[in-house]
C-alpha cells in the first residue's frame, strides 16, 4: 500500500496558547511537500505536535498514517509507525555514542530476537556516513555533543537514512548549512526519494528547494496554511518575499502566539 499521511483540522496549544489553528494537509508516498513561512508562524509547532512532543497539546483534529491514528500513539510508536522528524534543535546526549544510539533505534524497530548484526550495522552506518561526507569518528562521538550546527543537521539526515521512515519531516534542515553542506544534505534527501516515502520540508528559504524539487508548496501564517501551490509558488516567494501574500490575504502580523 502506498503511504498515506493525512492531517485533518489539527489544532494545538503550548502553555495554554493556541498556536496551530486548524491544519489540513494530505500527503502520499513519493510526494514532496514544502511548508514555507516567516519565523514564528507555527511551523516547528506543527512538526513537534506531529511527533508528540510533551509540551504541545493537541486540542482538535486528527492525523493518520496509513489509516492508523497517529495521535493515539506514544512518541516511540509514532516513530516505529514510520514517522521521522529531523529536528530544528536536536538534543545533545553525553555518554551515549552516536552508533549505540543508532543501533538501539534500529533494533527498537526490528524487535527482540531480530536485532541487526553488529557487522551489518557497522557496514550500513559507514556507508551512509560516507555518502554524507561525515568523518568516521562521528560514529564514536557522543550523540550531538559538541557537534557544530551543520554537523548536527547532517547527523539528523544520517538517522533518517538509517531508519528508513515512511514520512519524513525536515524542520529547517537547511539553516546554518554552507553551500557544500546544503548540497550534501540535499543529495541525502534525494537519494531517499521513493514511491512509498513522503517528505514534508519546513523551511523559510527557497534555497534547499533548488536542490530538492517540491511537488507542493504551502505557506504558513498565523498557525494556518494560508496558501498552497506548486513549485512556482516557492520561486515567487524567493523573488518577492512574503509581503504580497500578506497583502492578498489582508494579514498584518503573520506570527502566532504573541501575547496580546
Amino acid at each position: 500500500m502506498a503511504t498515506q499521511f493525512v492531517i485533518n483540522g489539527l489544532k494545538a496549544t503550548i502553555e495554554g496558547k493556541e498556536i496551530l489553528k486548524g491544519i489540513d494537509l494530505e500527503m502520499k508516498g513519493g510526494e514532496i511537500h514544502a511548508i514555507m513561512g516567516p519565523n514564528g508562524t507555527g511551523k516547528s509547532t506543527l512538526a513537534s505536535a506531529l511527533m508528540g512532543h510533551p509540551k504541545y497539546e493537541v486540542t482538535e483534529g486528527n492525523v493518520t498514517i496509513n489509516g492508523e491514528d497517529l495521535l493515539e500513539m506514544e512518541v516511540d510508536e509514532r516513530a516505529r509507525a514510520g514517522l521521522f522528524l529531523a529536528m530544528q534543535y536536536p538534543s545533545e546526549i553525553a555518554g551515549v555514542t552516536n552508533s549505540d544510539f543508532m543501533r538501539s533505534a534500529i533494533n527498537a524497530r526490528r524487535g527482540e530476537g531480530n536485532e541487526i548484526s553488529l557487522i551489518k550495522f557497522i557496514r550500513q552506518m559507514e556507508g551512509k556516513m560516507k555518502e554524507l561526507e561525515m568523518n568516521e569518528e562521528f560514529a564514536h562521538r557522543y550523540l550531538n555533543e559538541g557537534f557544530s550546527g551543520g554537523e548536527k543537521k547532517r547527523n539528523e539526515i544520517l538517522q533518517m537514512m538509517m531508519l528508513d521512515p515512511k514520512i519524513v519531516v525536515l524542520d529547517e534542515i537547511d539553516s546554518g548549512l554552507d553551500i557544500d553542506a546544503l548540497r550534501i544534505v540535499a543529495n541525502g534527501v534525494n537519494a531517499m526519494r521513493s514511491e512509498d516515502r513522503g517528505f514534508l520540508i519546513i523551511t523559510h528559504y527557497q534555497r534547499l528547494l533548488n536542490y530538492v524539487k517540491p511537488d507542493f508548496v504551502h505557506v504558513m501564517m498565523q498557525g494556518r496554511i494560508v496558501k498552497s501551490g506548486g513549485p512556482e509558488l516557492a520561486e515567487r516567494l524567493e523573488a518577492e518575499g512574503y509581503d504580497w501574500v500578506k497583502e492578498e490575504l489582508g494579514i498584518t502580523d503573520e506570527t502566532v502566539g504573541k501575547d496580546a
Binding site: 516511540d76 544510539f101 533505534a105
Partner: peptide, 20 residues
C-alpha cells in the same frame, strides 16, 4: 523525547541516558 522520536521506548531511552 529525542530518543523516543527515533523509536526507542521511554524505558530504553532513560536507561541509555543514565548509563551514558
Amino acid at each position: 523525547h529525542y530518543m523516543m522520536s527515533r523509536g526507542i521506548s521511554r524505558e530504553d531511552a532513560e536507561n541509555l541516558i543514565i548509563r551514558g
